[in-house]
Design a protein around this nucleic acid. Sequence first.
DNA 1: CTCCCGATAT
DNA 2: ATATCAGGAG
Length: 211
Amino acid sequence: MTAAQTAKTLLARLREAHPDARYELNWKTPFELLVATILAAQCTDERVNRVTATLFQKYRGPQAFADADTAGLEEDLKPTGFFKQKTKSVQAMSRALLQNFRGEVPKTIEEMITLPGVARKTANVVLNTAFNLPSGIIVDTHVARVSQRMGLTKKEKGEEIEKDLMKLIPQDAWTFFGPATVLHGRYTCTARKPKCDACPVNDICPKIGIE
DNA sequence: CTCCCGATAT
DNA sequence: ATATCAGGAG
């Protein structure tokens, strides 16, 4: 079975298993999603949602984050881990947004990745989810792992994996494929002890790297 | 390549 | 005890 065939079948099975896959981060505006996605690095959505529930009451919009007391914001972000780094990213991103984009989240990936703390993964989450734009394919740790195990890529770097996936998945499916594959990786094709018995693509998976 | 950070699963 | 978790910067 070729990688193209595997990808096509994976996409079809994901549509059955996760028909309305979407990100589990809570947000009301594209800016809120951008902040939440920065906070989601190495942290579960559940914990991010717990923090943002009060965070977005306290700081409304990029100006509030730009003006925020740094030590106070660090305290607010502490439960998400990497809190000093994330505080720096969120404040620098907010200031860049105000200076270069009139405080509005830009709608192209080229503009998005000029923002501090924002690389392709974060940019694709916001563009795919908030604006429904197929700017690329979200490649996080889950998408990377699933793609490697299924033989869709031999690459290690997220950007390289994304290139391979963009050739294998039709563009009109990009915004679905990312979130659906994240769910598949999170709950079925887990990093440790993958649940192959309960996997919807068990029959076509080459299981690369799984003992 | 290392560093940033803490909670949870194994 | 340690690998891993909705990563990105220096």
